[in-house]
Design a protein around this nucleic acid. Structure first.
Length: 147
DNA sequence: GCCAACGTTGGC
DNA sequence: GCCAACGTTGGC
């Protein structure tokens, strides 16, 4: 099996909060209108894990999502060259990891939220992913293979 | 192909 | 609600 990759995805809670995501059980991640973010979407594979960040309001990483499908066209922009994937909730953090905390953590100096504040879909290293999971007091229910 | 103008995002 | 940052667009 291909190695799992890690990502960061952002949503404004007033638009689509993690709690709603959990209620829905899965959702299509659509509406990305930035080339770099789109290319990141296209690099996703089923099984990849995403940190779920609440922007604007809350300003914290609040949970983990899993990519369910290979990337496809964005149905909200028919005929245009955008991308989307289906994602499902994995776990909500016990304690949301706030932006202020991320900023204070030296090991996260080059975490994309810090360096690329406006990028809505970004790649995350395994180290960063695991560290943030730990800061959130969270363990993955079904630890994905660690290879 | 450069770069100024514009629009949007998102922290504060 | 303001404004800085920055990606995108469009004129030249």
């Amino acid at each position: 099996m291909a190695k799992i990759q890690y990502w960061l995805i952002k949503s404004e809670p007033s638009v689509y909060a993690y709690a709603q995501f959990e209620r829905d059980g899965q959702t299509d991640w659509t509406g990305v209108r930035n080339f770099e973010a789109r290319n990141n979407l296209r690099a996703m594979k089923p099984g990849d894990l995403c940190l779920y960040y609440h922007s604007n309001e809350g300003k914290a990483v609040v949970g983990v999502a899993q990519v369910l499908t290979p990337p496809g066209p964005d149905p909200t922009a028919p005929g245009e060259d955008w991308a989307s994937v289906s994602v499902g909730p994995v776990v909500a953090f016990n304690t949301p990891v706030e932006l202020a905390t991320l900023k204070k953590t030296a090991a996260l100096k080059d975490f994309p939220l810090i360096t690329r504040g406006r990028l809505s879909v970004a790649a995350v290293t395994a180290r960063h992913f695991k560290l943030i999971l730990k800061l959130g007091g969270t363990v993955l229910p079904n630890p994905p293979q660690s290879s």
